[in-house]
Nucleic acid binder design. Structure first.
Lengths: 196, 196
DNA sequence: ATAATTTTTCGACTTAAAGTCGAAAAATGT
DNA sequence: ACATTTTTCGACTTTAAGTCGAAAAATTAT
């Protein structure tokens, strides 16, 4: 009853490491149980399927990142800095192999899609709150904030996640962001350093 | 030498039908060869792998759609109609089961991602040409057209592909499109009917 | 034509990996 | 100390992709 929960966390950690370093598709359940030193049956006592494991791994990642991002929200800093803070929270930690490196590999489509979806799901409400604040302060001017924030995240994901992007891409993205949120030209220039 | 090419096309057709109706993941190579009445070895004589087959199927789809879209390009019609024409070309044919229905199913992530990528790859240059034309005519006003077109496609894919979207979503998308391309408010209203 | 060569086809076999199951062992409760 | 619940075990099943060497069919050369 208690032991179980610890074991499950342990397995999620191991799966996390393996998924990140070798990719989801290249990690077999046998790899995980070998690493953990347990039997097949034990694994399936804790996880319905390999895919459910992936979901739990991603949930765990996002919870951590959302927590970091959330603490920024109530700080007494300008909206620009809050935005920067939230984005940074969701940037992959360089500790071990970056998520990026594995994520962009063609074989990891499933993992990539799931991470992206969950990331948007968790980041949209957080960022929306900040933009809302910015609207009140007069920095931005628009409605339908969650929709617009989502669009920006989707774009940035597509533009920057695959590594190969130019200065030009950043410039366009900044321009688009300002136009989407109704900000004065130049307001979002601080994004440049954040991305590059 | 000649027979081979016919057989390959036949197999691509069969794979296409099966992938569309049951989904990629739920279609086994055995399903395909049974349907075609051939042996395993024959299949692998034509395709390196199941995934390569998927790629060839998607290429085939896109070639057809790009051809339809291309014919719109040189027509003597207003840019708005050209845009509508191109978008329509890439809309799934309702002949058999729609691509949508299968594509959005959670198990078909790989297929979904591949279709999306290929669709963007083929549609961006076509649409960009039209927008370029629109800029010359003064309907639009922006640079970095391919980047912007890509962004719009990425957004529309995210917003509308999964079926559940509201009037509001459409309105926001239209607004964003106009702002991205530097068009006068209302210019892109014709998109509403196209999407709904 | 027929022999030589190339293309196409065959299907049994291999490999890899996910997932099942019933029963044993360990932990927990009474 | 006995009963119940939780956890663990690993052999077994299933499913599906992919291999391979050899036969059959089609092409080309002589």
């Amino acid at each position: 009853m208690r032991k179980g929960e610890r074991r499950k966390q342990e397995l999620i950690q191991i799966a996390y490491r393996l998924f990140i370093s070798r990719g989801y598709d290249n990690t077999s359940v046998d790899d995980i149980i070998e690493e953990a030193g347990i039997a097949k049956g034990t694994y399936y006592y804790y996880f319905e399927s390999k895919e459910k494991t992936l979901e739990e791994v991603i949930d765990m990642m996002m919870e951590q990142e959302a927590e970091a991002a959330g603490s920024v929200l109530n700080a007494d800093i300008p909206v620009e800095q809050k935005i920067a803070g939230i984005i940074t929270s969701f940037q992959p930690t360089q500790k071990e192999e970056t998520i990026e490196g594995v994520l962009m590999r063609p074989e990891n489509t499933v993992m990539h899609a799931k991470v992206k979806q969950k990331l948007i799901e968790t980041a949209v409400p957080l960022l929306s709150e900040v933009i809302e604040e910015g609207v009140k302060e007069g920095v931005f001017s628009c409605d339908d904030i969650p929709q617009r924030v989502r669009m920006l995240l989707v774009i940035s994901n597509d533009t920057f996640d695959e590594g190969r992007f130019s200065e030009r891409d950043i410039a366009v993205f900044i321009d688009v962001t300002e136009k989407l949120l109704g900000a004065k030209p130049g307001t979002m220039n601080f994004l440049r350093e954040l991305i590059g």
